[in-house]
Design a protein around this nucleic acid. Structure first.
Lengths: 226, 226
DNA sequence: CGGGGAAAGTGAAAATGTTCACAGAATACA
DNA sequence: TGTATTCTGTGAACATTTTCACTTTCCCCG
C-alpha cells in the first residue's frame, strides 16, 4: 500500500513469485493462495502477502490470488511489459555467452549490440548481433535505443567503461567485473560478482578447521607489526 | 571474537576487504586503518572493524592493520590458501565462458573438468579442459579430486543435475540456472540468478511511472476474480 | 618513562527485515 | 439470509544487521 521506498529484497522476491506463477499457470491453475504458493515453493506466506500488499490489493479474501491477474500486475510493477534494449561492452567469452543468454529474451530484454576495442572483433557478428567499436558507443546507443548496459570487460577497464556508459545517458547497468564501482545519483548499478560467491563457497568448505583453532588462534597472536 | 555463526554478509565483505588490501598492497602501502580503508573504498569503518573482530584481533590500536598480515589472515579465513577443484556441468556457452573465467584462477580455483550429456561435446577440449560424459560424473570427480560443482545447464535440468552432484558427495555448489533449488543439510548452494538482477534493473527503469498512479492504481481495482 | 594522540575493539542504539497472529472481507452453502 | 470457513491485509513482536559512541590499548615523542 505504501510505495514510499520499496526494498530491493522485496522486488527480488517479486521476480521469484512471477516465476512461480508462470509455473502454476503452465500447469493450468487459475488461482492460488499465499499459503499454496509458500508450500509449493518453500516460501513464507506472510512475506508473500506483505510484499504484494506494498503495491496494491491484488488478492481476494477467502479465495486467494487470481494467477493471470497477479502475473499481469507483477509484470507491470517490474516493468517487464516494455522491451528493454541491451548493449554489452566486452565481446570476449563472457560477452558472447551473455549475448546468447536465453534469460534476456525471456525477460523481455533484447540484446541490441556488442562493443569492443579490439579491431579484430569489431564488425564480427554473434548470431544477429554486431560488434561495434566502443568509440561509437554513445552514437550506436542512441540509434539502437539502448537503455541497459552490461559491463563484461576485465576489472581494470571497468571504471573507464562505466564512465563512458553514464556519459551516454544510460541509467541501468549490470556489471560483471569483479570490482566495486561507484555511480552517482540516479544511475542503477547491479554488480554480479562471481568472485564473492566463489569465496563464500570456499569459506564454507574451510569452515570445520576454522571454527575453533587449528592454525588460527583468535587471540594473542601478532601484537607488534613487523 | 565469537565465531558462533558468522553471517554470510560478513564473509562476503571479507572478500571485498581482501580485494581492497590487494590494491593497496600493489601500490606499496604497508599498513592501513579501518578509516583509511573505508574512505578509500566507500565502506563503513565500524563495519570493517566488527567484521574482522569476529575472527580475531588483527589490528593494533592506535596504528591500524598491517596489510600483508591481514591479507594472510583473510586468505586463511576464506580458505583461499588451499586450491579448490571445480567441475562445470553444462558445456554450452555459459559453461565454456566459465571454464575460461580468469576469476577462478585468481581465487585459487582450478577448473578440472566439464561435463555434458551431448555426445558431440563429450571428448572435446576447451583449452586444457576436457568435456566428460555426465554419466561418469561421480567417477571423474573422485579421480580429479573435484570438490566444487558449477551448474550451467538449462533450468529444467538443474534439479536432476543437483541430485547427481550431491550423490557424488560434493558439498559446495554454484548454480547459474534461474530456478530455486533445494538442498539438504550440509551442502552449500549459491545461486547466481541473472534474471532476478535483470528484473531489478527493469523495476528501477519503470519506477517513475510506478511510484504513484500512471496506469497502476493501488486500490479499488479488481474485486471479483474473473 | 610518562602523557598525548590515534585507532582498534565493542556494548548499546537505531534501522531494517521477517514472522506471527488476528481482525475483517469475501465466498460457499445450508 | 445467516453462519461457517477461508484467506487476505496488517499492526505488533521478533530477529538481524548496521551504525554510533565510548573504552581500552598501544605507539610515539619529548
Amino acid at each position: 500500500m505504501k510505495v514510499d521506498k520499496i526494498s530491493e529484497l522485496t522486488t527480488n522476491r517479486l521476480s521469484i513469485y512471477l516465476r512461480c506463477l508462470n509455473e502454476l499457470a503452465a500447469e493450468g491453475a487459475k488461482s492460488v493462495s499465499s499459503d499454496g504458493l509458500a508450500n509449493r515453493f518453500h516460501l513464507n506466506s506472510a512475506q508473500i502477502r506483505k510484499d504484494l500488499a506494498y503495491f496494491g490489493e491484488f488478492g481476494v479474501r477467502g479465495v486467494g490470488y487470481d494467477i493471470a491477474d497477479l502475473r499481469e500486475h507483477i509484470t507491470k510493477i517490474l516493468g517487464l511489459d516494455k522491451e528493454h534494449r541491451v548493449g554489452i561492452i566486452g565481446a570476449g567469452r563472457l560477452g558472447a555467452a551473455l549475448a546468447d543468454y536465453y534469460g534476456f529474451q525471456r525477460t523481455n530484454f533484447k540484446v541490441a549490440a556488442l562493443f569492443d576495442a579490439d579491431k579484430d572483433k569489431i564488425g564480427q557478428h554473434f548470431g544477429e548481433i554486431e560488434v561495434f567499436d566502443i568509440k561509437d558507443f554513445s552514437e550506436v546507443t542512441k540509434k539502437a535505443n539502448i537503455d541497459v548496459a552490461v559491463i563484461a570487460v576485465p576489472a581494470e577497464y571497468a571504471q573507464g567503461v562505466l564512465e563512458l556508459i553514464t556519459d551516454a545517458g544510460i541509467k541501468a547497468i549490470m556489471n560483471f567485473a569483479p570490482t566495486p564501482l561507484r555511480v552517482s545519483g540516479d544511475v542503477k548499478l547491479k554488480t554480479v560478482d562471481l568472485t564473492i560467491s566463489l569465496e563464500s563457497l570456499s569459506y564454507y568448505l574451510a569452515l570445520p578447521s576454522n571454527v575453533n583453532g587449528a592454525g588460527l588462534k583468535p587471540n594473542s597472536t601478532n601484537r607488534r607489526k613487523k
